[in-house]
Amino acid sequence: MKESSPIGIFDSGYGGLTVFRSIAEKLPDYDYIYLGDNARSPYGDHAFETIYQYTLECVEWLFSKGCNLVILACNTASAKALRTIQQKDLPSKYPGKKVLGVIRPTAEVIDSFTKTKKVGVMGTRGTVNSESYLLEINKFFPKIKVYQQACPMWVPLIENNEHMQPGADFFVTEYCNALINQSSDIDCVLLACTHYPLIMPKLTAILPAGIEILAQGEIVADSLVDYLKRHPEIESTISRTANKSFFTSGDSKTFDEHAAIFFGEALQSGKMK
């Protein structure tokens, strides 16, 4: 009997569930393990070395559960840990294992969403300060000008389920205006944090009409479909019983209560050990 080898999906908290949801819709037959490092989230303001260490520990835990492929469904982890894990840890300790992020898939397609070639990126301080999107988008599309805006209050509002309350309007408006004030020609805004799709109604109402607001879930899911087609040696190892397991480093009951908002359905998690 073939051993279970699910696709691992990691996030510092809940936001990666929006990406997981899109992936599971595109690839419903595979097995998945989701891990949220809620005990140590949010990652956005931590130092590079701390984020790398936390992310590596969680990736190694997913490897220990049989995952041969892990998706970092977290922009901060993708920005500050992915490259080091890919270049340092995988070759020396985990040959044959793969870890992918969410930044490159988005950068590869961003050109098709902008006519003015002026793109806004809204993310955590960690993602913005890393300049990962500036570098990746410039690598593929040198003519695109990227404007960034850190939105440090959005994740706490969302994780406390306050994001759709009137009190959140101030912070949503403040960061949107700060971005648009950098250039009135921005015609595409990338939500470079997997939490942010939950405030899409407010963003649509506040940002100028005609701006395309881009969430990452479907883009990352499409990219994974393509990746598995191009890498049958990885695809063939993934087990297919349509099983989804959820784990958290924090309190399971609290995770379950909040996670349903992001995943769109009730779920039951286990404790990371």
Rank of each mutant, 00 (worst) to 15 (best):
I7Y: 01
G8D: 02
I9D: 08
I9V: 15
F10T: 06
F10V: 05
D11V: 08
D11A: 10
D11P: 05
S12M: 08
S12W: 09
S12C: 08
S12K: 12
G13W: 08
G13H: 09
Y14D: 07
G15K: 01
G16D: 06
G16V: 00
G16S: 11
L17S: 10
L17W: 02
L17G: 11
T18L: 05
V19K: 05
V19R: 01
V19S: 03
F20N: 04
R21Y: 08
R21C: 11
S22F: 07
S22W: 06
S22K: 08
S22V: 04
I23N: 02
I23A: 09
A24K: 10
A24F: 10
E25K: 15
K26H: 12
K26E: 13
Y30L: 13
D31F: 04
D31T: 05
D31V: 04
D31G: 06
D31C: 08
Y32A: 06
Y32I: 03
Y32R: 05
I33N: 01
I33R: 00
L35R: 10
L35E: 09
G36N: 10
D37C: 12
A39H: 14
A39F: 15
R40T: 11
S41T: 14
S41K: 05
Y43C: 11
G44T: 13
G44W: 03
D45H: 14
D45Q: 15
H46F: 12
A47E: 15
F48M: 11
F48H: 15
E49N: 14
I51C: 09
I51Q: 09
Y52R: 02
Y52G: 04
Y52M: 00
T55M: 10
T55S: 15
T55V: 13
T55K: 08
T55Q: 11
L56C: 06
L56G: 03
E57I: 08
C58L: 02
C58M: 13
V59A: 10
E60Q: 14
E60Y: 02
W61Y: 14
L62K: 02
F63S: 07
S64D: 04
K65E: 06
K65I: 07
G66A: 07
G66W: 00
C67L: 00
N68L: 02
N68R: 04
N68K: 08
N68F: 07
N68A: 04
L69F: 12
V70G: 03
I71L: 14
A73Q: 01
A73Y: 00
A73N: 03
A73S: 06
N75K: 05
N75A: 13
N75F: 00
T76V: 10
A77T: 13
A77W: 09
S78F: 08
S78Q: 12
